[in-house]
């Protein structure tokens, strides 16, 4: 009788203690993104454009991209993204990818002029809380001397009553898969910043993500608005 009871206990234990699956709705719109930040190309120069394709879960994929110039008399571009600045003027460069009967594209307006000018933009956004923990603030991402600088402004506040809060840059705000882990959050109020290594490009990611590692749950995110 006692052995039977022990056997039942053992069976209960075996059946309910296996690692299972929790499913995450991580679908995002596929996106083609020109990552080159150029404002002006010097007349007569060649310039290499870069592009990245992000699939329906925000992961980078190699795909065959078509390049097009809106005015070949001003700037020509081949199918590898290598442009030649022919004469001064304005032109729109388009990268496109045809996938499942839909065309995904991105455009950048470029000037052909006397000097090559790289855009030094500052990207910004606002943190939105997606849990019941306190999390708010605004952020900017800009280039500094050796890499990028993510700055969080004085309106920032995060709950200290949460174990293992980490901050990421990601193209899918639902998951840390494929995200760049900036590090553990150690500041919970006010202005602070994070240095990002130069392996990360300024417009490589679309969101800032706050994620609780121990509970494996998203706490909040913020989309770059530019």
């Amino acid at each position: 009788m006692n052995l039977q009871i022990l056997s039942y206990l053992f069976l209960i234990f075996i059946f309910i203690s296996c690692i299972g699956d929790d499913f995450v709705d991580d679908a995002v719109e596929p996106e083609l993104r020109i990552t080159t930040l150029v404002d002006t190309i010097r007349q007569g120069d060649s310039f290499q454009f870069e592009v990245m394709y992000l699939n329906n879960v925000g992961q980078q994929e190699n795909v065959e991209v078509s390049w097009n110039s809106s005015n070949n008399s001003v700037l020509t571009i081949d199918q590898n993204g290598l442009a030649n600045a022919v004469k001064t003027g304005n032109v729109i460069v388009t990268a496109s990818y045809e996938s499942d009967n839909s065309i995904i594209e991105d455009q950048i307006e470029v000037v052909v002029g006397m000097e090559t000018v790289i855009n030094n933009i500052t990207r910004s956004g606002t943190i939105q809380v997606t849990s019941n923990y306190i999390l708010k603030g605004n952020f900017t991402l800009s280039e500094n001397n050796d890499g990028l600088l993510l700055e969080i402004d004085e309106s920032y506040e995060a709950s200290e009553n949460l174990p293992g809060l980490y901050i990421y840059l990601t193209n899918n705000p639902s998951t840390t898969a494929g995200a760049f882990e900036i590090g553990a959050v150690t500041v919970f109020e006010g202005t602070h910043s994070y240095d990002i290594p130069n392996s990360v490009q300024l417009n490589q990611y679309s969101h800032v993500l706050y994620f609780c590692k121990p509970f494996n749950v998203k706490i909040g995110d913020g989309e770059f608005i530019n």
Binding site: I19, D22, V24, N56, N216
Partner: peptide
């Protein structure tokens, strides 16, 4: 003690592996 795998609803890939 264990936690489950986090699995993509989109493509079925494991996003964060479970552990025990």
């Amino acid at each position: 003690s264990y936690n489950n795998n986090l699995v993509s609803m989109t493509n079925g890939e494991i996003l964060v592996p479970g552990d025990a």
